[in-house]
């Protein structure tokens, strides 16, 4: 074995060691890496009320109620993952992207009655990038209602342009 091939093997062996170490570490910590819990997870094993968790899911259509209390907006809405829904209460201004059908992540605690009191609500954007005209056209023709979930398959609209959508 020449010195070059020996060095090559040493490098490959080191890479394999570091790689497997990292993979094992990530596996062990994977529950901590998860940024948020789904409503069904929260329902199945409710965390104690003194533990702050992140709850992630879709804002259920028709569940959003906003009232104004002495100038501060008080919001109540249901967050669902399709299997379970959790009632979320949040006092404060919601982000721009917040709407029914949007995915959100709320930071807060689970109450004894199963409700969730949020101290912070973040809007989660999905991987769909759609011009406004196309979205308006899809909504107008009834092909998609953003309040009920994700946009239809991209191949059905990704070549639609403003002109085609408008005409």
């Amino acid at each position: 074995m020449t010195r070059k091939t020996r060095r090559l093997w040493i490098v490959i062996a080191c890479l394999a060691c570091v790689g497997s170490a990292a993979a094992l570490t990530l596996r062990a910590f994977s529950s901590n890496i998860v940024f948020f819990m789904a409503p069904s997870q929260v329902k199945a094993s409710p965390p104690s009320p003194d533990r702050t968790i992140r709850l992630g899911g879709m804002v259920m259509a028709g569940s959003l109620h906003r009232i104004n209390e002495n100038g501060t907006p008080v919001n109540a809405f249901q967050v669902t993952d399709g299997q379970a829904a959790v009632e979320v209460h949040y006092t404060g201004i919601l982000p721009d992207l917040f709407r029914e059908g949007q995915s959100v992540v709320a930071l807060g605690t689970v109450q004894k009655d199963g409700g969730f009191t949020a101290s912070e609500v973040l809007a989660k954007h999905d991987e769909t990038y759609m011009p406004k005209e196309v979205a308006d056209e899809l909504k107008r023709t009834g092909k998609w209602d953003p309040r009920f979930g994700k946009a239809p398959d991209a191949s059905s609209w990704d070549t639609m342009t403003a002109k085609k959508a408008g005409g």
Partner: peptide, 10 residues
């Protein structure tokens, strides 16, 4: 998969 993005942005 097909990109989930409009061609006009792609």
């Amino acid at each position: 998969g097909a990109p989930t993005m409009s061609m006009m942005m792609l």
